[in-house]
């Protein structure tokens, strides 16, 4: 077994008064693609929020260890600087914040954290422009306000653009395929696949198996009622397709 990049142990978390995660255990391996599948309301998005330190989620019990460190009490930006990246299911629109300015601030925050020199505007823009082209985004996206007025597909591509610029170590893709047409889905998955380098880990959260045709998973975890109830290889996808989540019982 390869190195474990993240280990989640007996995680209990709630949103408001409602407990959503009820003792979840999960190990993510370095360089592997893990898919979390489960019915609506199982706690998939809550898991991604717990990992990234979202304000809605309160962890009441258990641990999230990332690269050997307990991160439950970390600020969201510290988790990001250490390499955790979440591609949001519904990226928020931020009118008035220029896309390029935002991303350069983020990239330079990370470079500073790594002890690297900050990128100047020109260097940064050169890199960003190339990736924008590669992802098939319109060049004017660079200077538009962050996600404002973007279509569903444009928002997702913008998430992938940020991911490629920030070069994270653990990538969480929350329903990356929702609302994407086939072309957008192809472009987005190509971007993701390019990021695979044998070191970087992926956590693909999805309700449908469609995205897994494009991003081949190494492991499938079934999340139901706040717990991982089954972990298996990619062959489980077919079984789920056929029988649905109802048929999967706790192992």
């Amino acid at each position: 077994m390869s190195n474990v990049v993240m280990e989640i142990e007996n995680l209990h978390a709630r949103i408001g008064a409602k407990e959503i995660l009820k003792g979840l255990n999960l190990q993510l391996e370095e360089g592997k693609v893990h898919a979390i599948m489960g019915p609506n309301g199982a706690g998939k998005s809550t898991l991604s929020k717990a990992i990234t330190g979202h304000y809605d989620v309160e962890v009441t019990e258990g641990a999230i260890r990332y690269k050997g460190q307990e991160i439950v009490d970390w600020e969201p930006e510290d988790r990001a600087l250490e390499g955790i990246f979440l591609s949001f299911q519904n990226p928020v629109e931020i009118p008035g914040v220029n896309n390029a300015y935002f991303l350069r601030t983020a990239v330079n925050a990370k470079r500073k954290h790594q002890g690297l020199e900050e990128l100047n505007a020109a260097e940064f823009l050169r890199e960003m422009k190339a990736l924008v082209q590669e992802l098939g985004m319109k060049p004017e996206m660079i200077n538009r306000s962050l996600n404002e007025g973007f279509s569903g597909g444009e928002k997702k591509r913008n998430e992938i653009l940020q991911m490629m610029m920030l070069q994270p170590d653990l990538i969480i893709l929350d329903e990356i395929d929702s609302g994407l047409d086939i072309d957008a889905l192809r472009a987005v998955s190509e971007g993701i696949n390019k990021m695979k380098d044998g070191k970087r880990s992926f956590l693909v959260i999805t309700h449908y198996s469609r995205i897994l045709d494009y991003i081949e998973p190494d492991y499938i975890h079934v999340l139901k009622d706040g717990k991982i109830i089954k972990t298996a290889g990619p062959e489980l996808v077919a079984e789920l397709e056929e029988k649905g989540y109802g048929a999967i019982e706790e192992a």
Partner: peptide
């Protein structure tokens, strides 16, 4: 919005300033 910026590694105070400027 604040969380989005922070989840990209931008420190809280910086993120606040960005949003106020915006």
């Amino acid at each position: 919005q604040l969380f989005y910026l922070r989840s990209r590694g931008i420190a809280k105070e910086e993120a606040r300033k960005m949003l106020i400027l915006a």
